[in-house]
Design a protein around this nucleic acid. Structure first.
Length: 591
DNA sequence: GTGAAGGGCCAC
DNA sequence: AAACGTGGCCCTTCAC
């Protein structure tokens, strides 16, 4: 394809170019950088296109990397990037937003992200890919050659083909957006698209902010686990090799404790009736009878902490900031949930010993806020079940309140066991639990489990009705939506019972889990706006939890902002049930 | 040597 | 015969 571009190298050229672009409501936007990490590399090119002509700004002519932020000549460019009246169309705009934020010192506002749009339109179809080349092909039929993406963007003189490539990626965006916007409209996805685009900048900033991990504390914790692991491994080794014939004169036979096959063999030799899988919940019942099984479970626990939460995480500390800057994927799951990697800050063990290593920097505080029972509140709201709703409105312990209703006893007479049954069912129904699984986790017989569930649904009639109706509807229409209108298309073979049952559970769960994600995303935008100009910085999110770091003397004010933003966001999506947020100030990530 | 698949387990 | 949803990371195993 033919691309008309201009290479901008001076102040006057920049002024004219920006003035031209200002007339366009939609602007294709892209950047080229020398690295993937904004703390490591240089922001080399910024490309802006009105669809007809494309401006390629070579920032090397506007000062060295460190002082771009203070260069007054770049102000028109910053203003354009930050003005929501001009929509910048970019593919994975979080990437560009981070570079622009860090190197030019301005926020990206007015966003259409073709990566997120592609994901929303795919509606959970995992076959679809979402690279720019894939999206361009799918929506416009244009074939893009991305081979230049990895070329050297640090050389003094960029080649003609490099600049042409850079220009082309920005030039194509207008046409791509038009096609996508049309599709978003037809699929009724405009509200969720706005929600996603609005929370992009908060996430970009969160990644730049990073989170502080106390390395010394982490190593101390690690040493303790290492000692425990060595001891447990040794004991397990002894117990397992007792059943191995080769445990000869020369000592015990070494078994690889991490090898599923070897451990299973050894267990069989010891006469343990090993189930099909050796997963914890399958082995748990055997642990009482067979000490070796208990020891195996203990070993797995420490081995997991050591491998997944060991020294590896320290490799992620960025030298320049002394902090961990993980990667968050905004639409990490089809439900709309975030995912996180390198490292995954959403799976740090809840155990205090781990979490207390994540600390506020010197003179700072962490403000930690999480939604109380948000998914169950969403379910109560969606179903409209008065008794379920009452359990929230009453303000007392929710699980005890539901137990009181299910078992027909006064709230103060609810036994621990009754509360526990209710609690497990409350959580389980969100995932579409069945009687056998419920029985397995509570120790109830199949019969008793069924009876308890019958009692539960007999109490919450409208909830039962909602789940049945919704299940029927989604199998028929093969789709589900969250509060923001996020769409999931279900694919299953209706003649396959297992597939159908699985699709039903997924389809029931998605609007609940997804609306929770909607609410979190909405709260991030509100928070971002309300924290502007303060010392408060977003540092981590874990599905229903938000962690902000701020100056110690601003902690109380920040806590109020956080609680307010989260509650307001929640009440935009649920109206029949109060939204509750627990917030507290601490120097480390713990309760 | 590298990469994918499968099993397992951490979070919500 | 009945198997609870979403993710990422680590390990082993196995194919190339």
């Amino acid at each position: 394809m033919e691309v008309y571009f201009q290479l901008i190298k001076d102040v006057e050229g920049l002024k004219t170019a920006v003035a031209d672009l200002r007339r366009s409501e939609f602007i294709g936007f892209d950047t080229e950088t020398t690295e993937l990490d904004p703390y490591k590399g240089e922001l080399r090119l910024v490309q802006l296109s009105d669809g007809k002509s494309t401006q390629v700004i070579d920032l090397r002519h506007f000062g060295s990397n460190g002082d771009l932020r203070t260069n007054e000549a770049l102000q028109p460019l910053r203003d354009l990037i930050s003005d929501k009246a001009n929509i910048k169309i970019a593919h994975n705009a979080k990437f560009d937003a981070k570079w622009v934020r860090h190197h030019l010192g301005c926020e990206l506002d007015g966003i259409f992200d073709t990566y997120l749009a592609s994901q929303l339109i795919a509606a959970g179809d995992s076959e679809r890919r979402h690279s720019l080349a894939d999206a361009a092909q799918f929506f416009t039929g244009i074939e893009l050659d991305k081979s230049m993406q990895v070329s050297d963007w640090s050389s003094a003189e960029l080649s003609h083909s490099q600049i042409e490539y850079a220009a082309r990626d920005a030039a194509i965006m207008r046409q791509l957006r038009d096609e996508m916007a049309d599709r978003l409209g037809r699929d009724d996805l405009e509200r969720v698209a706005a929600l996603e685009f609005d929370c992009l900048m908060p996430i970009a900033e969160m990644e730049l902010n990073g989170v502080h991990l106390d390395e010394t504390r982490w190593r101390e914790q690690l040493d303790k686990v290492k000692i425990a692991q060595a001891k447990t491994a040794d004991e397990l080794q002894d117990m397992l090799s007792a059943g191995v014939a080769q445990a000869s004169l020369f000592g015990r036979a070494e078994i690889n404790l991490d090898s599923q096959a070897q451990v299973t063999d050894a267990l069989v030799n010891l006469g343990v009736p090993v189930p099909n899988t050796t997963r914890a919940w399958e082995l748990q019942p055997l642990a009482e009878t067979y000490p070796v099984v208990a020891k195996l479970l203990e070993y797995r626990g420490v081995a997991k902490s050591l491998s997944s939460f060991g020294e590896n995480i320290l490799e992620f500390i960025e030298q320049k900031t002394g902090r961990i800057h993980a990667d968050f994927r905004q639409i990490g799951a089809p439900t709309g949930r975030f995912s996180c990697s390198n490292p995954n800050l959403q799976q740090i063990p809840h155990d205090k010993q781990y979490r207390r290593c994540f600390t506020a920097a010197e003179g700072k505080r962490l403000v930690i806020a999480d939604y109380s029972q948000i998914e169950l509140r969403i379910l109560a709201d969606f179903s409209g079940d008065e008794r379920f709703i009452d359990a929230f409105v009453s303000g007392q312990d929710f699980h005890a309140a539901t137990a009181s209703q299910v078992f027909g006893v006064k709230p103060k007479d609810v036994t621990d066991e009754q509360r526990s049954f209710a609690k497990r069912l409350n959580f389980g129904i969100v995932y579409g639990i069945g009687a056998s699984r419920f029985g397995l986790m509570t120790g109830l017989s199949q019969n008793d489990a069924e009876n308890t569930m019958r009692k539960y649904f007999g109490t919450f009639r409208k909830l039962d009705e909602y789940l049945r109706n919704e299940g029927r509807r989604l199998l028929q229409e093969r789709n589900a939506r969250t509060g923001s209108g996020r769409l999931l298309r279900l694919r299953f073979d209706e003649n396959d019972r297992q597939q159908t049952a699985s699709a039903r559970r997924y389809g029931i769960n998605m609007p609940i889990q997804g609306t929770s994600a909607d609410i979190l995303k909405r709260s991030l935008r509100l928070l971002h706006d309300q924290m502007r100009g303060t010392s408060a910085r977003l540092v981590n999110i874990v599905h229903d939890e938000i962690i902000v770091e701020c100056n110690a003397d601003a902690a109380e004010a920040t806590a109020a902002i956080l609680e307010n933003a989260m509650c307001s966001a929640g009440q935009e999506y649920i109206t029949k049930v109060p939204v509750k947020v627990d917030v507290h100030v601490a120097e480390e990530w713990s309760k």
